[in-house]
């Protein structure tokens, strides 16, 4: 089985590391970590992920700006993106039907089962 490629973008290395461990253990994914917002577009161009997990708030670059970068770049614009956010409450997420500006979003801390089902749902076909 071909492993699906996931790019995890978050300024906390410990978080992306945990994501990598958890996802790769399932045997179904290959995970690339990126902790610098300014570098993630070039990483995405090189890595060609099937899905990007993107933290909205990072110290160096705004997540929404990254989103617009991904969505306008030739090589990355068809890659599905899932937001991970620490500032929204679950209640707000429920009201927004689990999406922010049309992008599916998960609230941190996120449960592994929920994360897996979300990834499977939006993974590039």
């Amino acid at each position: 089985m071909v492993k699906r490629k996931i790019l995890a973008v978050d300024d906390e290395p410990s978080f992306t590391r945990m994501l990598k461990r958890n996802l790769e253990r399932t045997g179904a994914y290959e995970v690339e970590e990126e902790n610098l917002g300014t570098r993630c577009l070039s990483t995405a161009r090189r890595f060609h992920p099937d899905l990007i997990l993107l933290d909205i708030i990072m110290p160096d670059v705004e997540g929404h700006f990254l989103l617009s970068q991904f969505k306008t770049d030739q090589t990355t614009r068809s890659i599905p993106i899932v937001f991970l956010t620490a500032t929204l409450t679950k209640e707000e997420m429920r009201k927004n039907k689990g999406a922010l500006e049309g992008v599916p979003a998960l609230a941190k801390p996120v449960d592994m089962r929920l994360l897996l089902s979300c990834i499977e749902k939006y993974l590039k076909k």
């Binding site: 906390e12 410990s14 978080f15 945990m18 253990r25 620490a86 941190k108 801390p109 996120v110 449960d111």
Partner: peptide
């Protein structure tokens, strides 16, 4: 509140992932 949320939820997220990892 907003500041706390960001600062605390991120480490919590790491913990949660770690616990999930160990549990599996």
């Amino acid at each position: 509140a907003a500041g706390i949320a960001h600062e605390v939820k991120n480490p919590l997220a790491v913990l949660q992932m770690g616990v999930d990892y160990l549990a599996n």
